[in-house]
Amino acid sequence: MASIDKLERLITLTELLLAAERPVRVDEIRDRVPGYAENDVAFRRMFERDKDDLREMGIPIEVEPLPHADPPTVGYRLRRDRYFLRDPGLDPDELAALHVALHLVRFDGAAGTDALWAFGGAPMDEGSEEAEAPLASLPGDGRLPDVLDAIAERRTITFTYRSRHGEPRVRHVDPHRLEFQRGSWYLTGHDHERDAIRHFRIDRILDDQLVRSEPGAFEPVGSDVPPMPSEAWRYGEGEPVEAEVLVDAAYATLARQQVAPTTPILERPDGSVVLTVAYNEPSAFRGFVLGFLEHAEVLGPPDVRAAMVAWLDERAAGERS
């Protein structure tokens, strides 16, 4: 029973605030919305919780000082332009396509098909997709919506980040993009301290809540930011090094798939390939080459080849520390 009253109360409160042309005082809310407690303390507690619940649902209740009030008093309001969905005018086939996407992609912890309610919900001539197994699964993270929201509103975000190497540090980032790459979600953005574009793995952000600046804190960059590299050995701080790697014929197809499509590849008459691989994370580059075991080798430059030989000599000698 209590929850049914609450549904009615929350809808009425929303409607009252939407209809009002000016901020509404809290005592007016109490008088006009049925279902609030008589007792002052109990009313205040209920109202605070209703406000929190509505804000959690994305309803942007704002607090504003009332004009000409003496003593100064605040009121509550819902701005229609911030509350209402701007209708995207989806055609039925477009709505159906979104519906299919929601069913074929499993996104852990994400909103479900309720994302389509605002457009009239699921189309009526569907049904077969529901039973189909997902085509793709994406891991979720509670901070992803906040990051996307910060991108949309151009808010700088501040968080503590544990990088691959080194101690956790506080970062200030203008967020530009969310990228799902090699099984993880990354934030791509402009790192204030380094004054450069950096990629941050969302699951290495240590805070549950991100600190966000005011909206409009930076200029949009849009598609000027290049997509993240797909290769693990491109994620280092050092200057990039180019190396030539020879891979035997039987492993050539596998090797081609592991490198970026732009990688220069020379095919030899025996079917083996020479890949020119750029890297700035040496241990990941080593992992790429040694992953082929004795079916690949570094051809050059001489210092990179010598470093690989030295590394292999140490491992062959059973050197463990």
């Binding site: 994305g58 969905l85 996104f107 994400a110 389509l116 605002a118």
Partner: peptide
């Protein structure tokens, strides 16, 4: 005053965009 639906939450927007981009 109640003519249009509530805007999408960030979580709903993310779900729609991520599922679409994945597909």
């Amino acid at each position: 005053s109640f003519t249009r639906p509530l805007r999408l939450t960030p979580a709903q927007a993310l779900t729609l965009v991520a599922a679409s981009q994945a597909l």
